[in-house]
Amino acid sequence: MIATVGKYIRLTALMMKNCLVREMQFKVNFLVRLLTEMMWLVMQFIYIGVMYGQTGQIAGWTLWEMVVLAGTNHVIAQLFEALFYDNCMRLIDQIRQGDLDFNLIKPINTQFLVSLRYTDYASIANSSIGIGVILFALGKLGIGVTPGGAVLFAALVANSILIYYSILFILSVWTFWIGRSNNLMELYWQFGQFSRYPGEIYPWLLRRLLQTLIPMLIVSNVPAGVLIHKLQGGLVIYGFTLGAVFLALAAWVWRAGLKHYRSASS
């Protein structure tokens, strides 16, 4: 058991090292990516700034609380894109073109391999900007972070990344059945924006939907809520449970989909 876990950890480290070497061959590209993501973040802050220029609070959230939420969302989205987004996009092509064969014959869990093969380092660097934003906003709010709070926050962020991953992975795996799902991937970007703002702005039904079937509010609001002590009890446990359910669902859909896989030569 321990040997197996060790093998997977070593393999992950190797794949990440391999990607770092590739990335460092294109340093300018790396810097430009940092710059563009930063601009995107600045634009979001302009949007938030203009809105708070008109009112002191939005659905009970003050300006700096909203910035904590935006920063948290940025960290989660960037880390997700760093680890999984490219891999899911590649998976679609691999399934469609029958290139999955090379991965299937390797003596390792295929879902693990196709999900973590490539790492995008620019996005990892970008996520650190989000952490800076969060710390700055917490300073403005006069809220300190305890070590326990930091650990809980980190665990919730990891949980949110896995929820994002499960949803996108399921959408990619659809390719086994429908042959082409590039349009469905567009859903990731469309869903993403539901997580940018407080759940309180949505009417009851939509809010419940975004906490269950499409849990975009759990993804961002729960970790941010822990930091600014703005959370209904039970949501943390619920969030972790939901993460486990979605992850299990992704694994199940993957195995079901594989049965529909047609290789290239057919």
Binding site: Q190, Q193, L206
Partner: peptide, 25 residues
């Protein structure tokens, strides 16, 4: 058709967000 439907999704968040802003003032 997919494109046409997805295109309207951002509108949902936008409407409720602006409503909250206006309600605040």
């Amino acid at each position: 058709v997919f494109g046409a439907i997805f295109r309207f999704l951002p509108l949902v968040t936008m409407i409720f967000l602006w409503y909250a802003v206006y309600a605040g003032r």
